[in-house]
């Protein structure tokens, strides 16, 4: 008995799931051995959040972002690229990201030249290598979904989705993102090295994967993604017990001695669509404890500022502290 058997056909949720499955299949075709990260990125995409990947160079971040961009067709009219990449360097200027006004002598007026943020999927590579000013420009664009230049507001694409990366090791000459800026990312994902089989598979299939557009997997239209987003928001049920568990978890983390600063209320609000997206991705029309257990550490970990460095890995801390609220949630399900 699965969801498809119990839910009536023509359900918008099934269509949404279908869209997600198609994107997923396309990305999976390109990226091997990163199923869990792909799921997180997909969830963030649907939940209208952004993702920060922590990884070493050459671990497939760009491939992943490009594959995602390739899986979503840009709207015909806008002339936008579906995928852009910014390689951050210390000498980058904010206008290199957002775009700039150029004086057009023929018209005698300023013309707006859109920067790389005017796209669907943006890969912000090594975001901690650039100056805080540039970081702020990007993060504002991420938060507001618009760029303001010379008092003129330029809206970004409705699907604007950022995959930022940073290298957790090579920290010399970097500008680490402060917690407040990290808060703009829905997930911070630390990518572990892929396993041996997957790595072998990468080597074996490099030729096929170079054919970028597998004919049997057509890209998904932007409108479809947006529709799926709405369908999931409207149709995946979030029980009040789930809300309570979210709030209890945040409270438990804030109350812990090892934590100096913890998840904001905003982050809890942001996490609800992510939970819904994960439920939908797993074929459910309701958010369950499994979604919480799986997603919440990714949502909360990078928002936790530990009292002492190295006292505890935030991800493990979040997992440990959410055990109590999760247990209450499980027991509560038996009581009514």
């Amino acid at each position: 008995m699965t969801i498809s058997e119990t839910t009536p056909a023509g359900d918008p949720l099934i269509e949404a799931r279908d869209v997600l499955a198609r994107i997923r299949a396309r990305v999976l075709h390109q990226v091997i051995g990163r199923d869990d990260v792909i799921d997180l990125v997909l969830i963030a995409l649907v939940a209208d959040g952004h993702v920060l990947l922590e990884d070493f160079p050459g671990s497939g971040k760009t491939t992943l972002a490009k594959a995602l961009g390739g899986a979503i067709r840009a709207p015909e009219d806008g002339g936008l690229a579906s995928f852009r990449r910014i390689q951050f360097t210390p000498d980058l200027l904010p206008s290199d990201v957002t775009g700039l006004s150029v004086f057009d002598p023929e018209r005698g007026a300023f013309d707006f030249r859109p920067g790389p943020v005017f796209t669907q999927i943006l890969l912000a590579d090594e975001i901690n290598r650039t100056s805080p000013k540039v970081q702020a420009a990007l993060l504002e664009a991420m938060g507001e979904k618009q760029v303001t230049l010379d008092n003129v507001t330029h809206p970004l694409d409705r699907l604007f989705f950022v995959i930022a990366t940073q290298n957790p090791r090579d920290l010399a000459g970097t500008y680490p993102l402060p917690v407040a800026q990290l808060d703009r990312f829905l997930f911070k994902v630390r990518m572990e090295p892929i396993d041996r089989e997957a790595e072998l598979e990468v080597l074996r299939t490099r030729r096929e994967r170079r054919d970028e557009d597998p004919a049997e997997l057509p890209p998904v239209g932007q409108e479809e993604v947006l529709r799926a987003r709405d369908a999931i928001d409207a149709n995946v049920m979030v029980d009040d017990a789930i809300h309570e568990c979210l709030v209890d978890t945040a409270a438990a983390i804030r109350a812990d001695d090892r934590v100096a600063q913890a998840a904001s209320t905003r982050s809890l609000v942001l996490s609800v669509p992510a939970l819904q997206a994960r439920a939908a991705l797993h074929g459910r029309d309701f958010v369950s404890s499994e979604d919480l257990a799986d997603l919440l550490p990714w949502v909360l970990a990078h928002r936790i500022e530990a009292v002492a460095l190295g006292s505890a890995e935030p991800y493990d801390l979040a997992r440990e502290l959410m055990a109590g609220p999760l247990d209450r949630l499980a027991r509560r399900s038996l009581r009514r």
């Binding site: 008995m1 459910r284 309701f286 369950s288 404890s289 499994e290 919480l292 257990a293 959410m322 055990a323 109590g324 999760l326 247990d327 499980a330 399900s333």
Partner: peptide, 28 residues
């Protein structure tokens, strides 16, 4: 403690293959 119902069900799959199904019905 702290284990979700789904994870518990997964742990019991080999002993009781019907249990995950029952778990899902219950959670729904």
């Amino acid at each position: 403690f702290g284990e979700t119902r789904e994870a518990f069900a997964l742990r019991q799959t080999s002993r009781a293959p019907s249990f995950p199904q029952l778990t899902e019905v219950h959670l729904r």
